[in-house]
């Protein structure tokens, strides 16, 4: 729609103005780390953050989310919990992940709990200013992004380019004074920054081409690496917990104190947890740690791509950092199974 330009002070005024009118969530410092949370002032926003502990997925698929209310004597009603907000500072790889969830939750059977939440959120993406320790988005084609967001912010020198792409984006930029247009030179600089980010966001170097992963995994089902790595796995699910594309959930009922009414909610689950594939009678269809470990990498690198044509890993590197046993680096695993096949 249009690309504008703001300096830091104008950006802060815009964010403070938004905070007065709407719920605004953004990346802020928490101790030694960064996380997404509700902002009370533009000064809290840290667009130079390297990585948030949890991905912004938590606003689209909350850790727990009510789906249905019920009465024990019969009667079910949908519960929708839209939470309108402006989400500030989503990095490109996380934006790719959100777009992937959009596809997965809408295709085949449209999940309107997800969709209503999604539609109520305006996403202001932000190009990465500081590379995190384990990011490898550059290898996954997710270091920069061209779609899915409502607005994209890119820092060029001491200015921010504000690339407004949707009506929703337009709506939150109105009423904040005249913003000057970006110049051709600004756009050239943005192109150079994108090229640079493709190179910089590669703390781990994936050797096989991303498009080759499904075939590579197909030939590696019995590779020794699954046993080797899983031997050290605690089945803690940390890799699932921090992953921007993991979306498996369990569904539970909770009765209210009156013992006649209650609600049904979904709660994040993880395929690395020991009981994930247990059925009644205690038969566990993925009882071995190595089977669960393999399943996760197959899902990211084969099953999801074969289902929707997008790789299920966006290269954020959160699992690499979060894994207690230091076995979860997808790049290390995919490189290893590619050995001798390049």
């Amino acid at each position: 729609m249009s690309i504008k330009k703001l300096d830091q002070a104008a950006l802060d005024r815009w964010v403070d103005g938004l905070i007065e009118r709407k719920k605004v969530v953004g990346a802020a410092q928490r101790g030694d780390h960064f996380s997404f949370g509700e902002l009370t002032s533009a000064s809290e926003l840290r667009l130079d953050y390297d990585m948030s502990i949890l991905p912004p997925k938590k606003y689209f698929l909350p850790p727990t989310e009510d789906l249905i209310s019920f009465r024990r004597d019969g009667g079910f009603e949908s519960i929708f919990e839209e939470d309108p907000m402006v989400l500030l500072g989503v990095h490109p790889y996380d934006m790719f992940a959100i777009s992937q969830l959009d596809t997965l939750f809408s295709e085949d059977n449209d999940d309107i709990h997800y969709r209503k939440r999604r539609e109520a959120i305006t996403i202001v993406a932000s190009d990465v200013q500081t590379a995190s320790e384990d990011v490898f988005a550059g290898c996954m084609g997710t270091a920069t992004i061209d779609h899915g967001f409502d607005i994209l912010l890119t820092k060029i020198g001491d200015q921010y380019l504000v690339d407004i792409r949707t009506e929703k984006g337009q709506a939150i930029t109105m009423g904040f004074g005249e913003m000057p247009d970006a110049t051709d030179d600004d756009l050239d600089q943005r192109e150079r920054l994108w090229a640079e980010n493709q190179k910089v966001l590669r703390k781990h170097e994936l050797r096989p081409a991303v498009g080759y992963l499904p075939k590579l995994l197909g030939e590696s089902y019995d590779h020794p690496i699954w046993e080797e790595k899983a031997e050290l796995c605690f089945s803690c699910g940390s890799c699932n917990l921090v992953c921007p594309t993991c979306y498996c959930f369990d569904v539970q009922d909770e009765l209210n104190w009156d013992v006649t009414s209650g609600h049904r909610y979904r709660i994040w689950d993880g395929c690395m947890l020991a009981n994930f594939a247990i059925v009644a009678g205690d038969h566990n269809f993925r009882a071995a740690k190595s089977e669960r470990f393999r399943h996760r990498y197959f899902r990211k690198g084969k099953y999801i791509p074969e289902k929707i044509g997008q790789t299920g890993c966006v290269g954020c590197g959160r699992c690499v950092s979060a894994c207690v046993a230091k076995i979860a680096n997808p790049v290390e695993i995919y490189n290893r199974i590619a050995e001798g096949k390049e």
């Binding site: 999940d111 959930f249 689950d269 395929c271 059925v279 289902k307």
Partner: peptide, 24 residues
């Protein structure tokens, strides 16, 4: 085949048999 089809609509992931969903 029996699996833990928790959601029944191909979302929750529990019934996956490699790349297939037992529920769908």
């Amino acid at each position: 085949l029996e699996r833990r089809m928790k959601c029944g609509v191909g979302k929750c992931g529990h019934c996956q048999i490699n790349g297939l969903y037992a529920c769908q």
